[in-house]
Amino acid sequence: MGAETGILGSAPDALARILDQAPPVVEDALRGQTRLTGPWGHGALHDHLPAMEGHVIITYYGEPQDIVWRRGAERLAGATRSGTITIIPEGHEGRWDIAGPIGVSHVFLSRERLRDCADQLAGGRPVELLSRVGFEDPAAARIMELLGRDAAVADISARLFVEQATDLLVTQLIRGHSSFAALQQQARRGLADWQVRKVTAYMRDHLDEPIGLDALADLIGLSRFHFCTAFRQATGSTPHNWLVGLRIEQARRLLADRELPITEVALAVGYETPSSFAASFRKLVGVTPSGFRQRI
């Protein structure tokens, strides 16, 4: 995801041109010309957003909506759920499709503010934010909720709180959503524990459906190739074998209900035919599903 060449426009102005209303940016800028909005809302969006000056961080309120970003062959997708964030790094452009209406709040983060924090964490090395779309980060989302609450409060204590909370947000972005974070993760090898938990939870919630590698990789913002490598480093298992293990684990529980036909158990854990289910079950458990049921 590269940057546009030429002069970039301000992010609030660019958003105002494609939304049904302008972002209600708080008049007073923070240190480094970073700007905030309180919680607000806009309707559906189906338009191209040009490259912008500064970084845009968004969190969401209210009813979830599907959200998709596309540029050429690149595509990121998510949902505007509470506890998630979207990051549009400076210079990134593309088409946005949001079902809408949605509740949002924004942080328009200047490159200066990002650099000041990055210098402390990365020892002067350049840090680039990663694109995120409806990405789960409850910590960053909660900080943004607090910022939105106090964004327009004029007293000195609120201003101090907002400045310090903004530094905390930027630190979280660098730690979890930047090139610096990617280097740190590579040094640790594999996925973080929360990433394994997120992938596992998704698998458990969709055991009765086909689950592709692309969908799993998108959950944690990795390419398919890097996801497979990192998952195996973290768990000692391929994503496929991990999924099979979860399916057979659930099948063992379902088989305890003798009123439930084995064919329905197979369908409930994602197998289209009893024969493929029996083969997988026997490989892991050592007996067929019917043999297992007889033993319990």
Rank of each mutant, 00 (worst) to 15 (best):
D205Q: 15
R282P: 01
P239I: 04
V199E: 00
I211S: 00
K198S: 08
S223N: 09
D193W: 10
A201Y: 09
H206P: 00
W194A: 14
S276F: 08
T200Y: 03
S237L: 12
G212H: 11
R252Y: 01
L254W: 04
A279H: 11
T229N: 06
F277R: 01
D205G: 12
A217H: 02
P210C: 08
D214W: 05
A201S: 15
T238S: 15
L207E: 02
I262V: 15
D205F: 08
Q195N: 11
S275K: 10
W242A: 09
G212F: 10
E209C: 07
L246A: 06
C228Y: 05
P239G: 06
V244T: 07
H206F: 10
A278D: 07
I248N: 04
A266Q: 01
P239E: 07
M203E: 10
A256L: 13
R197P: 00
G245E: 05
S276V: 13
P210M: 09
H226S: 15
E264W: 04
E209K: 15
D193G: 05
G270Y: 04
A278N: 01
Q250L: 09
C228E: 12
T235H: 11
D218E: 12
L255S: 04
R247K: 15
K198I: 05
L267A: 14
D218C: 06
L216V: 02
Q195I: 10
Y202L: 08
T238V: 06
F225D: 13
G236M: 09
P274S: 03
A251M: 06
T235P: 07
A279N: 08
G270N: 04
F281W: 01
A201N: 15
N241C: 08
T229F: 08
L255N: 02
S237E: 13
F231E: 00
D214P: 09
A256C: 13
Q195S: 07
E264R: 13
A234Q: 03
V199D: 00
Q250G: 00
S275W: 03
D218M: 09
H226N: 15
H240W: 14
I262N: 04
P210N: 11
W194S: 15
S276W: 09
R247F: 05
S275R: 10
A215N: 09
V244Q: 08
S276G: 13
P210F: 03
A234L: 04
A279L: 13
V265I: 10
K198W: 05
T235F: 09
S223H: 09
L207Q: 02
M203A: 10
T229H: 12
F277Y: 07
D257K: 03
L260V: 08
L254E: 07
A279R: 10
D193S: 13
D193I: 10
H240R: 15
E249Y: 01
G221S: 07
V265H: 01
A251P: 00
D193Q: 13
R253D: 14
E259M: 10
E272L: 08
D218R: 04
W194M: 14
W194C: 14
F281V: 04
D214F: 12
S280P: 02
V196I: 14
D208N: 13
D218P: 00
R252N: 03
L246W: 00
A215Y: 02
S276I: 12
V244D: 03
H206Y: 07
V269I: 09
R252M: 11
R224H: 06
F281C: 02
S223A: 11
R258L: 13
P239R: 03
A266M: 07
A201H: 11
